[in-house]
Design a protein around this nucleic acid. Sequence first.
DNA 1: ACAAAATTTGACCCTGGAGTCAATAGATGA
DNA 2: TCATCTATTGACTCCAGGGTCAAATTTTGT
Lengths: 220, 220
Amino acid sequence: MTGYPHGMARQELTERAPGTERIQRKRGKRVKEIVETAAELFGEHGYDAVSLDDVAERLDVTKGSLYYYFPSKEELATAAIETLGDEWTARLERLAEQHEGGHAGLLRTLLHEHITIAVRDYPAALRLFLVPRAWPTAQADRIKELRGRHDAVFRRVIEAGVDAGEFTVTGVDTTLQCMHAAMAQSPLWCARLRGKARGNAISELTETLMMLVGQPPRTG
Amino acid sequence: MTGYPHGMARQELTERAPGTERIQRKRGKRVKEIVETAAELFGEHGYDAVSLDDVAERLDVTKGSLYYYFPSKEELATAAIETLGDEWTARLERLAEQHEGGHAGLLRTLLHEHITIAVRDYPAALRLFLVPRAWPTAQADRIKELRGRHDAVFRRVIEAGVDAGEFTVTGVDTTLQCMHAAMAQSPLWCARLRGKARGNAISELTETLMMLVGQPPRTG
DNA sequence: ACAAAATTTGACCCTGGAGTCAATAGATGA
DNA sequence: TCATCTATTGACTCCAGGGTCAAATTTTGT
């Protein structure tokens, strides 16, 4: 009757950490496994179409076990979006910091990286993150915040490029929305492709999106 | 114990039409009402999130009544997509035929019209039609066919424009996909806007998408 | 080796929603 | 007005799937 149901219990967790560090790490690892599997499935088939039994089955456990870590299906989905969304937002932010060179170069890098992550690592999860209303409405706020951070990375480059006279856009927001919409779908288009064909598709999409800021496509 | 359950019974319907013409028209009208209401709801909340009770309620009838016209929820959803998809595909095809002038002009018209229909008339249904996997998988084929026709309208203009040296694209398919992705989301972005603001948003989106074929945005 | 803590199980409850159907109400035409 | 066809109802079945929980199993620290 002990155990720490529903994993987090966030406040207490920081005050007097239950279990040893080793156990905590182990737990964290398990949570991550669950979250990634869930994201995979939710993104692929949609929130409603995936049952917790499905998630459990893919993990070779039972539904009940999931409830040891998450209090509800909604929380699980939200955790999935938050965790993964945070991960690659951070990655893009890092790229943006490190980069030196023109704005076009940076934007191209960001787009390419973003699409690559989406297609290669999280073919499904990205859609969850980017497509409004794909997740349970109750959680919309927590996700919106994250989405804002994500947007900001792209917004900064675009605005900088426009100010520098390098880019031409009709409206920054609209441009952003178009980019997101396209990237959110990209996993579907590239799902079947492998190896070189996939790489080409990603590059082609990147170049196409660069045109949204008035950058003529590169030859090659 | 008679009646013509599940409406169509397609073969027989053409051979020996049941009921008088007047009754048939009336029936068709009812079917259309149902289909439009269903499309509205499905598109807005997603297939799974909408129950037939929801659809019935909005129509001020009972679920059982829907089953008099459609054999299943899936069939209803498919009918919704087919009917509406066919309608506006036809409208775009007509526009393309009538048009005289440059390719850029035609593409701009098509985009603008398409987004306008989406936002004004069927804020929701369009997403059903354009976003892969938003509908029950069993029906995917029937919808894909329709989607093909729809794509063709845009593909023709783009290819013509490229051949004429008016447009620059990295790849026609990729360009098409980006356009569709953006248009599919447009109702979400413009949902809250009304009147002039909405018109502006639509125009801005149109101009932004024109950039995908290398057309600099118009001022104004 | 053993007790306490951490994890997993599987059987169980309960609700929402798809689909059915006999009975009823409403149209229509003779 | 009556008989027949059309349309609608509402009560019903059935089940997938979210969520619960006591008991069993595994892991951990001593």
